[in-house]
């Protein structure tokens, strides 16, 4: 790994200021994606701005029907949280299925969303629940946040501080794991909310996306059978050594059925 300057600010404005002042700097959360990328020399930041010293970025709070998770909260904490389990059990289960225990102890929700890996789990929950990404300067609706392959609405010097999830009536998540990495080959998050049914698909395409036909069917009949005959167009899906596009399309339907079944449990 190349040498870099290391900064550990204790407040958000200092972190954003350092990032704005140095375009070659990068924010460091748990390092679960950034450090392997640097070890492979795919990234060579001149400076790392470690967010671990900012106490306010970590933690879970429930205020009425709004669950807020700080950007630096590790997956293991979300998975083990009684607050999350009570408000949105599907979110706790999703966090507990990310990677492995050591990855869950370091990886964070903010890092996962900023990175926007096409196979990551959290984007499915954020889009499926219609959550809001909160940054140092604004609030971004999930529908506007995910733009494409590793691409989000974040500006170059923008920092995610937290994510706000509305409590759904019921929700479920199912993923077909890559047996090697546990990333989602396909993952589907289904939520029935006061604003309607939302279905978000991760792993299948360049970025997480909603499946309107599935949403309409579930709005009429919230059962696994309602989506059994539906499918997404394979022409838009990823094909790689792990799975062909047609297989991913098939998995979307199967995972959607399982996610609805999980929501009904």
């Amino acid at each position: 790994m190349k040498a870099f300057d290391y900064l550990k600010p204790d407040a958000v404005p200092a972190a954003v200021g350092a990032l704005a002042a140095n375009p070659d700097a990068k924010l460091l959360a748990g390092g679960m994606t950034l450090l392997p990328t640097m070890k492979q020399r795919l990234a060579e930041p001149a400076a790392l701005i470690d967010l671990a010293g900012i106490a306010g970025l970590k933690g879970i709070t429930l205020d009425g029907d709004t669950l807020t998770i700080g950007a630096m909260t590790p997956h293991a904490e979300v998975a083990a949280s009684a607050t999350v389990a009570a408000a949105i059990p599907a979110l706790a289960a999703l966090a507990g299925g990310i990677g492995d225990p050591a990855v869950r102890n370091r990886g964070t929700i903010g890092g996962s969303l900023a990175n926007c890996d096409p196979s990551a789990d959290y984007p499915a929950a954020v889009l499926g629940l219609g959550a809001t990404v909160i940054t140092d300067r604004r609030e971004i609706a999930a529908d506007d946040f995910f733009l494409g392959l590793f691409e989000t609405a974040l500006e170059a010097d923008e920092l995610i501080t937290a994510v706000r999830f509305p409590r759904p009536l019921r929700a479920g998540y199912a993923k077909f794991k890559s047996p090697a990495s546990r990333y989602a080959l396909v993952g589907v998050f289904v939520a029935e909310t006061v604003a309607g049914v939302r279905v978000a698909v991760t792993g299948a395409a360049a970025s997480v996306f909603r499946a309107p036909a599935f949403e309409a069917a579930l709005a009429a009949d919230f059962t696994p059978g309602a989506v059994a005959g539906l499918s997404v167009d394979a022409a838009d899906l990823n094909a790689d050594i792990h799975a062909e596009a047609s297989y991913r399309a098939h998995l979307v339907t199967v995972m959607a059925k399982r996610a609805v079944a999980a929501a009904l449990e």
Partner: peptide, 15 residues
């Protein structure tokens, strides 16, 4: 690290 298992190949000494 502080009682929790982590992968030391992906952890910077400053942590």
């Amino acid at each position: 690290l502080d009682g929790k298992p982590v992968k030391s190949c992906t952890l910077l000494a400053p942590a």
